[in-house]
C-alpha cells in the first residue's frame, strides 16, 4: 500500500505497530550513509543490536565472567567500610561512617546519574563485543568447514584415480 493510502487507512483504523514501522523507515531514510545504505544490512543490524542489548542477567555474559576472575570491575558507588584492626579500627570506621560518609555520599549522588550512564554504555559495549566475537567464531568455523568440504571434493575418490 502506498503512503497516502496508508495514512487514509489509519484515519479510521490506526495500527500502532504499522505506524511505528512506517516511522522507523522514515528515520532510517534520514540516516542512510555508507554500509547502512543497504536496507537488508541495516534491518539486520537493528534486530541484532536490539537482541544483544536486551536486558540479561549480568552473569550471562562470558566476557563479564572473565573480567570477574580478575577482580571486581562493576561500578561500585558504595564505599566498603570494614576493618581488621580491632577496636581502634572500629573507631576509625565509625568516624568514617558518621562523619566522612555523609558528605562523600552527597558528592557521589551528584555524579551518580552520569556514572550509571557510563556503566550502561560499558555493559552495552561489552555485550556487542562479545556477540561480535561469538559471531566471528561461528563464521570462522563455517569457513573452515566449507574449505574442508571443498578440499574433500577436489581430491578424487580412489576408484576415480586415473590409471598411470
Amino acid at each position: 500500500m502506498d503512503e497516502p493510502a496508508l495514512l487514509d487507512k489509519w484515519k479510521t483504523a490506526p495500527r500502532v505497530d504499522d505506524i511505528m514501522r512506517y516511522l522507523q523507515k522514515r528515520i532510517d531514510a534520514r540516516r542512510r550513509t555508507g554500509i547502512l545504505f543497504d536496507d537488508e544490512i541495516r534491518t539486520e543490524l537493528g534486530v541484532w543490536l536490539t537482541e544483544v542489548l536486551a536486558d540479561r542477567p549480568a552473569d550471562e555474559s562470558t566476557l563479564q565472567h572473565y573480567l570477574d576472575t580478575l577482580g571486581e570491575w562493576r561500578l561500585q558507588l558504595h564505599p566498603h567500610l570494614a576493618t581488621h584492626r580491632g577496636l581502634p579500627g572500629k573507631v576509625f570506621v565509625w568516624i568514617k561512617k558518621r562523619i566522612l560518609y555523609p558528605p562523600l555520599r552527597w558528592i557521589v549522588e551528584q555524579v551518580e546519574v552520569n556514572a550509571w550512564r557510563q556503566d550502561r554504555l560499558n555493559l552495552s559495549l561489552l555485550r556487542v563485543l562479545e556477540e561480535t566475537v561469538i559471531e566471528n567464531g561461528r563464521l570462522k568455523a563455517r569457513v573452515a568447514r566449507l574449505e574442508r568440504a571443498e578440499a574433500d571434493r577436489s581430491v578424487p575418490a580412489p576408484d576415480e584415480t586415473p590409471a598411470p
Binding site: P14, R15, V16, I19, M20, L23, Q24, R26, I27, R30, R31
Partner: peptide, 16 residues
C-alpha cells in the same frame, strides 16, 4: 490499545 506511539531514543521522539 492502538492508542498511542512510543519512543526509545531522540529520533523516535521527534518522528513520533
Amino acid at each position: 490499545s492502538n492508542g498511542g506511539l512510543f519512543f526509545s531514543n531522540f529520533s523516535e521522539f521527534c518522528a513520533g
